[in-house]
Design a protein around this nucleic acid. Sequence first.
DNA 1: AATTTTAGTATCGACACGATACTATCGAAA
DNA 2: TTTCGATAGTATCGTGTCGATACTAAAATT
Lengths: 180, 180
Amino acid sequence: MTAPLWFDLLERLAAVLDEELRRAGASAGLNASQVAVLRYLSKANQYSNTPSAVAAYFGLTKGTVSQTLLALTRGGWLRRSPDARDRRVVRLALTRRGEALIRRLAGRIAAVGVPEDLAPHLERLLRNWQQARGGLSFGLCRSCRYFLTLEEDRFQCGLTGERLLMPQPLKICREHAPAA
Amino acid sequence: MTAPLWFDLLERLAAVLDEELRRAGASAGLNASQVAVLRYLSKANQYSNTPSAVAAYFGLTKGTVSQTLLALTRGGWLRRSPDARDRRVVRLALTRRGEALIRRLAGRIAAVGVPEDLAPHLERLLRNWQQARGGLSFGLCRSCRYFLTLEEDRFQCGLTGERLLMPQPLKICREHAPAA
DNA sequence: AATTTTAGTATCGACACGATACTATCGAAA
DNA sequence: TTTCGATAGTATCGTGTCGATACTAAAATT
C-alpha cells in the first residue's frame, strides 16, 4: 500500500509553504504556526475570527491555540476584543503591524507565476478530501449554500439572517456549507 | 496586496494534511513533524536518506532535524547506519514498525477519491514555485534530467554513474534536476 | 601538510502541542 | 427560576520542535 501521487506532491508543496511562512516570520521573530494563524485571521469573516474557529481550522485543541494567540497578542500582532452579544466570545483582529506582515508575504507569493486554471483543481481536491473526512469546509462566504444576494452590493447570510457588508463575502466562514 | 487564490487553497490543504499527519501519529505518540519525516524517508532514494537531505527537504537546520531523528530513533521508528564510503554520513531507514505506520496512513489517504488529472497540475505549480524560489526540486529519480535507461529494467544515474536498482527510480532524489 | 568544506551532534531558550483541570457564560429544560 | 448541560475560553505541565551557537570528525581542496 503506497500513497497516491497527488498526496506526495501535496506533501512537498506543504513543505515549501511551511518554509515560506517560516521565512516570512523569521525577521519578526515569529514561527510558521504563528504566521499561519495571522494569515487565517486576515481572511476570516465575522463568524470566524475567534479562538475556537482558529482551533477548528487547524485541527488543534483550544488550549494549544490559546497559547499561540497569547504569544501573538503579547507581540502586538493581534488585538483581542470582547463580543458585544455573547460575553464568552473573544474577537480577534490583526493590528496594523500584523496586517503589514501579511501584506509583505502576499507580495512575495504574488510574484510566483502559476497556470491560470489551477484553482479549480485545488478546490475539487479540497472538497473531495473534506467530504471523505467529514470535516468543516471553511470555504469562502460567497460560495456558501446560505449566501444570499439581495441586490447589487447587498448581501445576507441565510443561516443567521444577518446582513453581510463588503469584504465579508470574500472571506472564509467556519459555517460554510458547499453548494448541494 | 492580497495573496492569490491558489495560495489560500493550498494553505487550507496544508492545514488538512497537517491534521491528517497528526492523527496518523497520535496513537503512536508521534507528532505531525515526526510523521512527515518518516513519510519523506519512506520515499527517499539512495542519495537522499540522510539527515542533511531531510533538513534540505523541509527547509530546516541540521540541528533541528538532528533532534527529531533522535526522537524517532529512540522510539524505534528509524534505524541509523554508517555509510560505507563516506564516514561522515549517516544512512536512515525505517524499521518495520515505521513502515507499518506509513502504510496505515497511505491506506487512509488512498480512500480519498480524487480527479484523475490532478497530479499534473500540482506538478506544474510545484515546478513554477520552486523555480521562482530557486530551491532544490526533490523530484522523482525517474523524471530527472540525468536519469538513464540502459535496457529494460537497467537504469543508471548520469550524475554519479551508479547503477540504479528497482525501486530507486520511483523515489525522491535530492539531486533531482527537472528536464530542461 | 595545511586549509576549507561538509556531515553531523550537543545544548540552550522560546514556543507548539495535547492533556487535564478549571472559570464564566449561555441556553434549555424542569 | 433554578438547575443542568453545553459552549468559549484560560491555566499549567510535560514532551518535543525549532533556530542559534558552538562543537567534532571526516572529506575535499590547495
